[in-house]
């Protein structure tokens, strides 16, 4: 048996690429709007966006479950959905939560999906199923009926199904949905392990904090559009640093900042702030002193990733779409 992955030169092809991919449902709902995904091989790509922003619909199209309205896409270099039966056996997936037969055991459920795979070797099925169950820590519950599984066990079984065969790409749609903090940590550790084996991971979430620690790249969706795509470092660089002055007279301080042509000067109780831009902090400090403002505190802060993410997706509680 060959080791999982770089079997088929994933280094030379993009793991996932889409161009102008669009999905309009029959009711007229535009769920995905001309998105151009580029997931580099070996990446852990966080696919972020609020509820209803089109993440699941994008994933359904990637897997050939839903047919696109327009645009093109390729998984591991194979065009989709036409190449579905040629490439999907190299792709493990979890879409919109686990789904199994409630009346079958964990093992029997995995055997069912394995039997449907024409590339799976029946001679190794038993070993592969046990290996996958072991990997997600589910061996002890392997003989239990799925009906009696806890939420976390169901989620693990779904990930195990994604690991039945050696894969080059794993697509996980909200894999930590409904899990407790402990379960969330375990899934995160599992994703790290999968990535360490050289498998490209595409993981969707509506929480940046959930994937921030494991992702190398992120794509951010908002109402069906991809509003940002790049590495985490690139995302950080999109945020403008702000200068904040603590003072007894914030109005006057804000005037000085505005006088230096700083953008978005604001005065709140006890604080004045503005976008730093190209002006050096030293010069701002000197100007404030020169204007006779009593400076109690002075700070330059970059926005957190969370702030940037909220800035991209909007703060509202209402779902998009």
């Amino acid at each position: 048996m060959q080791p999982p992955s770089p079997a088929t030169s994933p280094l030379t092809t993009t793991a996932i690429s889409t161009s102008e991919r669009t999905k309009r449902f029959r009711g007229g709902q535009l769920a995905v709007d001309h998105i151009d995904l580029a997931v580099p091989p070996g990446a852990v790509y966080g696919f972020l966006g609020p509820n209803g922003s089109g993440k699941t619909t994008t994933i359904r199209m990637l897997l050939g479950l839903a047919f696109p309205t327009s645009g093109s896409a390729a998984l591991l270099g194979v065009p989709m959905p036409d190449g579905a039966t040629r490439v999907l056996h190299r792709v493990g997936s979890l879409v919109e939560g686990p789904a199994f037969y409630p009346f079958l055991t964990g093992t029997a459920n995995l055997a069912r999906y394995d039997a449907a795979d024409r590339t799976a070797d029946p001679a190794t099925a038993r070993a592969r199923i046990e290996g996958a169950l072991d990997r997600v820590g589910l061996l002890a519950a392997a003989g239990k009926r799925y009906r009696h599984y806890s939420l976390g066990m169901k989620q693990r079984l779904a990930i195990a199904a994604g690991l039945l065969q050696p894969r080059d790409l794993i697509i996980l749609d909200e894999p930590t949905n409904g899990l407790d903090p402990q379960g969330t940590r375990e899934v995160r550790a599992l994703i790290r392990q999968i990535a360490a084996d050289g498998i490209t991971v595409f993981v969707s979430s509506h929480l940046l904090a959930e994937v921030e620690q494991i992702c190398t790249h992120v794509g951010v969706m908002r109402t069906g559009r991809l509003v940002f795509q790049g590495s985490l470092t690139e995302l950080r660089h999109t945020g403008a640093a702000r200068v904040t002055v603590r003072t007894a007279d914030p109005e006057a301080a804000a005037k000085v900042l505005a006088g230096l042509d700083l953008a978005d000067p604001q005065a709140t109780s006890g604080e004045a702030s503005a976008v730093l831009g190209g002006v050096s902090p030293e010069q701002i400090c000197a100007e404030l002193v020169h204007a006779g403002i009593g400076v109690r505190g002075f700070a330059v802060t970059s926005p957190s990733l969370e702030d940037l993410f909220v800035g991209l997706t909007g703060e509202g509680f209402d779902v998009s779409g």
Partner: peptide, 8 residues
């Protein structure tokens, strides 16, 4: 959806 993603 999982049978088709296998792909069956």
């Amino acid at each position: 959806r999982y049978l088709l993603a296998v792909p069956a």
